[in-house]
């Protein structure tokens, strides 16, 4: 039983590791053309946006709690608080919101 699970886990590990490893090893040695360099610079903003929305709406038990927590994070980040502060304050906000409403 466990043996067949080992094969499954190794298979999953391999197909997860390769897409992480190959681009890192291969591309770090290559000088990219300007177009693709700029493309790479734009990836973080695009990826963060897709990672946040609409996933955030289901992050907590209610959409409103998630929106309030998200708003707290945006405000604190806008005023340049540290990431740890942003995260902790957002958790606290959601916690309090759920406690009160």
């Amino acid at each position: 039983m466990m043996n067949s699970y080992i094969i499954l886990l190794l298979g999953m590990a391999l197909v997860t590791y390769l897409p992480r490893m190959l681009p890192l090893v291969i591309l770090s040695e290559i000088e990219l053309p300007p177009f693709w360099k700029r493309f790479m610079l734009y990836i973080p903003s695009a990826a963060l946006s897709a990672l946040i929305f609409p996933g955030i709406l289901q992050a907590t038990d209610s959409v409103f709690a998630a929106l309030v927590g998200g708003l707290a994070a945006v405000l604190l980040a806008y005023f340049k608080f540290s990431l740890l502060t942003v995260v902790t304050a957002s958790i606290l906000t959601v916690f309090l919101y759920q406690l009160l409403f």
Binding site: S45, I52, A59, A65, G70, V86, V87, S90
Partner: peptide
């Protein structure tokens, strides 16, 4: 506890927001 878990699950989204705000402003 349900309420704690539900609150903590905002954490990664808060982090993504904390990272995207300086990028896009």
């Amino acid at each position: 506890p349900e309420i704690l878990e539900s609150s903590m699950e905002i954490a990664l989204y808060a982090m993504f927001l904390g990272l995207i705000v300086p990028e896009i402003t």
